[in-house]
């Protein structure tokens, strides 16, 4: 129990925040054209926590995220079985899946700056939900870009193409866009792949702060990132959820499954 980092204190201090069950996953199985990607996963994600998901490549982490906001509707071969309850209600029962996706912000590993101006990139989601007032849009754009640690770099050229920014900037733009939806739930899929370490740290700080307001699911291939941020963590391996545990417990030895220890200690993956 010697591993102590500054994050842990904050986490303990915030422990009171974590409240109701935000996402309740029961017996979730995902397949692509008959090939299984995820089998029989059950877990709970609570309001106001950062929930980490770690595991090697192809363990079903991304598929899990895609099932949460019903992206299987856009992927023909993808099949989802089991129940995913969001705010206590099965996502499949939402008659308006678009409203569901509007409440869930997603950041994928490879940055996607849409080929429109930086301003339009961030204003897109608010506009989709019907906001037309210039002043209001301006506020949202500035706030979200600041949150994503991009505002200072682009404030003078909001009209230039978002798709021509550098990789790291595009990733922060993607995060700003996800925030512009005013999501209740933010899904981050290995967001730091395309970002330099300094920016990664800045975004991590933002996430810690956002946690007060929203729930975050953080898929990461960096176990230390999960340790820095997540209060609880799931370990996925080859389409299976090996265990869900308090993050600190996972790193300090009280694992439920020996494979988890081997992974977090870096013996494979």
């Amino acid at each position: 129990m010697t591993a102590i980092d500054t994050g842990q204190h904050q986490r303990s201090a915030d422990e009171g925040l974590a409240g109701d069950v935000k996402i309740d996953v029961r017996n979730l199985s995902i397949g692509y054209a008959g090939k299984s990607a995820l089998r029989n996963v059950s877990l709970e994600i609570r309001e106001h926590e950062i929930f980490g998901i770690i595991g090697p490549a192809n363990s079903g982490k991304t598929s899990f995220l895609r099932a949460l906001n019903r992206m299987d509707e856009f992927t023909e071969s993808m099949t989802v079985d089991g129940a995913i309850r969001f705010n206590g209600r099965d996502v499949r029962e939402w008659r308006n899946a678009y409203a569901l996706r509007r409440r869930i912000g997603v950041v994928f590993p490879l940055p996607v700056g849409l080929p429109m101006s930086i301003y339009d990139n961030v204003a897109l989601a608010p506009r989709l939900s019907g906001i037309r007032k210039k002043q209001q849009l301006d506020d949202i754009v500035e706030r979200c870009l600041s949150r994503a640690a991009l505002w200072d770099e682009v404030r003078d050229r909001l009209g230039s193409l978002g798709s021509l920014l550098s990789g790291g900037q595009q990733q922060r733009l993607t995060i700003a866009r996800a925030l512009s939806q005013d999501p209740e739930l933010l899904l981050l899929d290995e967001f730091s792949i395309a970002v330099d370490p300094v920016t990664t740290m800045r975004i991590e700080d933002v996430l810690k702060e956002l946690r007060r307001e929203i729930t975050i699911v953080l898929v990461t291939n960096l176990v230390q990132q999960a340790r820095r941020l997540a209060s609880r963590t799931a370990f996925f391996l080859m389409g299976e959820c090996v265990e869900v545990n308090d993050t600190e417990a996972m790193f300090t030895g009280t694992v439920k499954d020996p494979r988890t220890r081997e992974y977090v200690e870096g013996r494979f993956g």
Binding site: V106, T174, R177, A178
Partner: peptide, 19 residues
């Protein structure tokens, strides 16, 4: 990827096509 990004923001297929 542009389409996926748009869908993830809750855009309908048509909004994605149009915008």
């Amino acid at each position: 990827a542009f389409r996926e990004a748009c869908w993830n923001m809750g855009a309908t297929r048509w909004q994605t096509i149009w915008r």
